[in-house]
Design a protein around this nucleic acid. Structure first.
Lengths: 250, 250
DNA sequence: ACAGTAGGGATTGTTGAACAATTCCACAAG
DNA sequence: CTTGTGGAATTGTTCAACAATCCCTACTGT
């Protein structure tokens, strides 16, 4: 049921004497086959095994995973609802190709959500190890030239920023937005140059946050997102059409 | 699909001679049975035909609607994903009973989303007929004592405020949040007193918005939401438990 | 009286097959 | 080059069957 990649902490139960026990709830509540299948497909899509525009055949995938068509279709519904797949009646499901308008809208929401999250940081200096960790992972990835990890670290960094809002629904939302963005990056050729130049800004934002300067961090983050969006839209504009054309000519 | 970002009146398609025809694409795309079933159930849940905590039997509803269990299960997945239903493995699906934490989280997100939307109103006076319409519908409903309509008008008012952000995803999100809130109101006994007292504030917010004073409107709206949340949480705290107990004793 | 437990019926989970509806593609006809 | 026109492939949907699980009842033993 959790579309989000990371869970955000342990909440105490209202029953005393069982501290942190419900953290194991995930182990107890088994998942239905459809949800597990959806999990597998979600991961495959995220890592680019299924490329945007590609069709997911019920027969093939059903056979490959050893589940029936009905069960598989339930999984498809889940992912369609998350905007990872596009369902066309009587034609099947396809890995979604986000339009440029989608990219613009995604960033519109990110600006609202992430900026609100960092703005809420109180005026007292504090340490945020989870965020710091993500920044450092990004640094390390850049130093070793591991561009794939750099991209994911950057995604995690922003998810942690959004998590400052302390809202389960916000976490889920940004999880979906970033999953959708991954589709965009799979269509673009070179994620390397894109993420690389934003590394110093991650540090700046982290500094502001740890200094307790919420509004200052917000200002930096807004500029960050505006720049990233502009750059991304420009590079993506014709790529999306090209991807669609490539599918049509397939 | 091929449109540009600007919403200029008439944009040229790549094929000349078909101006604005792709606007009818929505009419062409039929919906699958599962989606139509989900629509029916969604409406029934919203209007309280299926009460929170109630179980939705595959057999009964499948027979009543004349669809197979498989198709019905697809519809259930959709609604579960929207947090309207809760799916318990091997036990079936139930109309969700939002917890108090859910209410708090819903308002947390509403504050972020709606406030950001009105804050973005430019400093130039303008008229917003769609919002004004919803306010007036609320007035009329209160005058004629139609409390049910008053509640829905109030919901629409806030949806229109959120729509100021111009984001498809924000609209969808707010739609889901308000659908979830409807569950809350179904558990509470008296929606009348709750909505009634907020009518004057709707006018104040509308005035600020039409005056082009985004930040002013934001301030009012924030206070509005904080008050509503506090009042709702207080009244709801034990109601939710009572509802759960009632289901258990059923 | 009461905790534990062993059935048994009902409901969900999942599968496989079947058929209708629709799309897709190649090919022929104009 | 466009316009039918087949047939193959795929999806949409239903149905029947069985396994797994839950829920309730009645029985047991203390």
């Amino acid at each position: 049921m959790t579309g989000t990649i990371r869970d955000v902490g342990i909440e105490d139960s209202d029953l005393p004497g069982l501290p942190g026990l419900e953290a194991d709830r995930g182990l107890v509540s088994r998942k239905s086959t459809a949800e597990r299948v959806a999990g597998v497909l979600r991961k495959r899509i995220a890592e680019g095994f299924f490329l945007p525009g590609g069709r997911l055949s019920e027969q093939d995938i059903g056979n490959a995973l050893g589940v029936s068509r009905n069960t598989l279709r339930e999984a498809f519904r889940l992912l369609t609802h998350e905007r990872l797949l596009a369902h066309e009646l009587n034609r099947g499901v396809f890995v979604r190709i986000p339009s440029v308008e989608d990219v613009v809208d995604i960033y519109r929401v990110r600006k609202i959500i992430e900026c609100a999250a960092v703005r809420g940081v109180t005026a007292k200096p504090a340490s945020f190890p989870r965020i710091k960790e993500k920044v450092e992972i990004g640094d390390e990835a850049a130093r070793t030239g591991n561009w794939k990890d750099l991209g994911t670290a950057n995604v995690w960094f922003h998810q942690e920023l959004a998590a400052l809002s302390g809202s389960e629904r916000v976490n889920e939302l940004v999880g979906r937005l970033t999953a959708e963005l991954r589709l965009v990056f799979h269509i673009m050729a070179e994620p390397r140059r894109f993420h690389e130049r934003y590394l110093p800004r991650n540090h700046e934002i982290l500094d502001r946050v740890e200094a307790g300067d919420g509004p200052g961090a917000e200002q930096l983050l807004m500029k960050y997102l505006e720049d990233a969006e502009e750059q991304l839209v420009e590079a993506y504009a014709d790529r999306a059409e090209a991807a669609r054309a490539a599918v049509a000519a397939d």
